Measured scan of single mutants.
Amino acid sequence: MEVVDPQQLGMFTEGELMSVGMDTFIHRIDSTEVIYQPRRKRAKLIGKYLMGDLLGEGSYGKVKEVLDSETLCRRAVKILKKKKLRRIPNGEANVKKEIQLLRRLRHKNVIQLVDVLYNEEKQKMYMVMEYCVCGMQEMLDSVPEKRFPVCQAHGYFCQLIDGLEYLHSQGIVHKDIKPGNLLLTTGGTLKISDLGVAEALHPFAADDTCRTSQGSPAFQPPEIANGLDTFSGFKVDIWSAGVTLYNITTGLYPFEGDNIYKLFENIGKGSYAIPGDCGPPLSDLLKGMLEYEPAKRFSIRQIRQHSWFRKKHPPAEAPVPIPPSPDTKDRWRSMTVVPYLEDLHGADEDEDLFDIEDDIIYTQDFTVPGQVPEEEASHNGQRRGLPKAVCMNGTEAAQLSTKSRAEGRAPNPARKACSASSKIRRLSACKQQ
């Protein structure tokens, strides 16, 4: 084909351009004929944790799935940006308080904090938690009735009371019990989460009196709706648990309003109706937990002794299953770290194939690490110290990083047969305790 000078094309009309061969290198194709290559998922490591896909996002930050490269346990990490926390009232204080509380709590029905990582340079905090497959609110939203069968609701409620009793025994008032803060594992274990607005009572406090509340409006008791200066913290949790039980068994809320002012007005009056299909035992329990006067409201001991709580409820309806993943529609909620794991395991070791967030990740503290002497050669063979940054567990980050890069360049065919977990650990520049 004859090559045409581009400067001469402006002298031709459209018809003349076609005659000189423009149609031979300008093609129009339908979008259905285009085959897009999927974007390669680059592996990203935060300390010893391999990052997966997004699980959810809230006002405080994002939650992603991660894999512990040492234990191969599935975890969830809450990623918090200090810049964003400053824009939220009491944001930083709530996060630090939640970390302090979770560090000393150990119960099967309370979410466990596994690790805390802090990135000084990017001003990011990573709260590594045990993995929960789904939230209770997500399960309720997945069915038209917006409720659980009585047998399933009873099982979840009993676990909620177990976890709540443990928190109260530790002198902690949750203040925000609701389905949105109750998570579930694949085995059906309920976990109380989000202790950001919780309050730890003084060890020598005479009672459970509280003065502040930041919980969700629909789950607040009349004493808070009416603006009382002080109130019983434990009875606030009992009320919120009662509203939660009402919601998961009926699909409704005892109090509603077009806006928060109308909602608080209705809560302050204390008038509500219980659907007739709840039955006398459940209705009596709800009335005891939603008692207007805090002094007359049920205690956890009274809830445990109630006939509806103690009764064994046979399954009359099919239980609400864990819904498919909202993004991938995966009904099994498979591990989202698998594509990243395959990338590390299947590809040659190259620095361009993975990302390490930083050479140094500070753990379990908000301060910069200490310094240790770096050896410097002298005339008599002895070495003197220069400062060298280290990880919180004493690992020399720069030395590990250099060693990792040197190993990656060394030709050794046997290394390709290593397991995925050992490869992740070798790529991680800074081991965590």
Rank of each mutant, 00 (worst) to 15 (best):
Q382A: 11
G58I: 00
S216N: 02
K97N: 08
F219H: 08
E349F: 06
A398N: 07
A377S: 09
Q123Y: 06
D115Y: 01
L55G: 13
S240W: 00
K146I: 01
G251L: 00
P319M: 11
P369W: 12
K108S: 04
P315I: 08
D207S: 04
I46M: 05
F148I: 10
G279W: 06
Y261V: 09
R383N: 12
T336K: 13
Q100E: 09
T402F: 08
K122M: 09
S401E: 09
A93V: 01
G163F: 00
S213P: 10
L290A: 01
C132F: 01
L282S: 02
G346N: 14
V173W: 02
I224H: 12
F255Q: 05
D352N: 07
M22F: 06
A273D: 05
D327S: 14
E33L: 06
F219Y: 09
S69L: 09
T363Y: 08
E293A: 06
P315E: 14
P324R: 08
N266V: 04
V63N: 07
I424L: 10
G268L: 14
G91V: 02
Y261W: 03
T185V: 05
R39S: 08
A318C: 09
G346K: 15
D194I: 00
Y362V: 10
A153R: 01
L182A: 02
A429P: 03
S404M: 14
Y126P: 00
K81Q: 04
A406I: 14
D207A: 09
I248T: 08
T71V: 06
L195D: 15
Q382L: 10
E349S: 11
M335Y: 10
Q214D: 10
P89H: 10
E130Y: 01
Q100D: 14
D343F: 10
T13L: 05
T249R: 09
K329F: 08
K97S: 03
K81V: 05
T328P: 14
T244P: 00
K62A: 15
S299A: 11
N94R: 11
T249V: 14
D358L: 14
E145D: 07
D115S: 14
L344F: 04
I274R: 04
P179I: 04
C132Q: 14
T212W: 11
R75M: 00
R409T: 12
Y246A: 06
I322M: 04
L245Q: 02
R384S: 13
P315R: 10
S232V: 04
L344Y: 05
L195A: 08
A206T: 02
N119E: 06
L386Q: 11
D330R: 12
T363M: 14
I35T: 10
E145M: 10
E357H: 14
P339M: 15
K41S: 12
T244A: 03
Y340D: 02
D162E: 01
R426L: 11
C430W: 06
L263R: 11
L160S: 02
P413W: 05
E256C: 02
A93L: 07
A429G: 07
E351V: 10
D352T: 14
Y292A: 07
P326Y: 01
T402Y: 12
L80M: 02
A218I: 05
G187V: 04
R39C: 01
R409L: 06
L85G: 01
G394E: 09
K287G: 09
K78N: 01
G268N: 06
T209G: 11
V114D: 08
T71Q: 14
C151M: 02
H27I: 03
E57A: 07
P281S: 05
D68A: 04
F234W: 12
G227T: 15
P321G: 06
V77L: 06
